[in-house]
């Protein structure tokens, strides 16, 4: 049997965090959130570029499973994660996660579901253009995506 060494390293970080001065949690969180607002404009641009790139990938899909194209699409979908939240679009964030889940599952099983992917692409477009606070519209859209995931027995973490 191989040997196991168990020890408790001392983290310099723990000592630093307790040093006098610093800031309160409330101040720090507020400052960080204000900082993030400065990225929103760039976030919108990248979001729209990402959606446009995914439209182009979708246009290249055929009727049969194409592993390389699904992988390319997955890469684009993953890069979208985080941008919708930055822009205050939580429903779109949820839909982007759903698309990642679906593409990962398709890639793993080799099964093709063009309709399921198309529903996601359309949902992303719809949710991108929803006015703030339109949760009543977003909810049935997200419910539809959940049903697509259920068809593939995907247990999303969302």
């Amino acid at each position: 049997m191989s040997s196991v060494r168990i020890h408790r390293p001392k983290y310099a970080l723990a000592t630093m965090l307790r040093k006098p001065g610093g800031t309160t949690v409330a101040e720090a969180v507020e400052r960080a959130e204000t900082n993030l607002e400065s990225l929103q404009e760039a976030g919108w641009v990248q979001l729209d570029e990402g959606l446009a790139a995914m439209d182009k990938v979708f246009a290249r899909y055929g009727d049969r499973f194409d592993g390389d194209l699904v992988a390319e699409h997955y890469g684009l979908a993953v890069r979208l994660i985080g941008l919708p939240s930055l822009c205050g679009l939580d429903a779109l964030e949820n839909a982007a996660h759903s698309l990642c889940d679906l593409l990962d599952r398709l890639s793993t099983t080799g099964r093709w579901d063009r309709d399921g992917v198309q529903v996601h692409i359309q949902a992303l477009r719809l949710l991108r253009n929803l006015p703030a606070g339109a949760d009543a519209v977003a909810e049935p859209v997200l419910d539809g995506l959940r049903k697509v995931r259920e068809r593939h027995a995907i247990q999303s973490s969302n």
């Binding site: 965090l17 006098p20 001065g21 610093g22 720090a28 960080a32 959130e33 993030l36 985080g82």
Partner: peptide, 28 residues
Amino acid sequence: FNLEKATILMLDGNGMGMDILVQIVTGL
């Protein structure tokens, strides 16, 4: 809490991902 003296390494290949992280940790 005090993060002022901490040296932090951030790794992210996505420019926007890095920007988001930088804005968060500098805010903290």
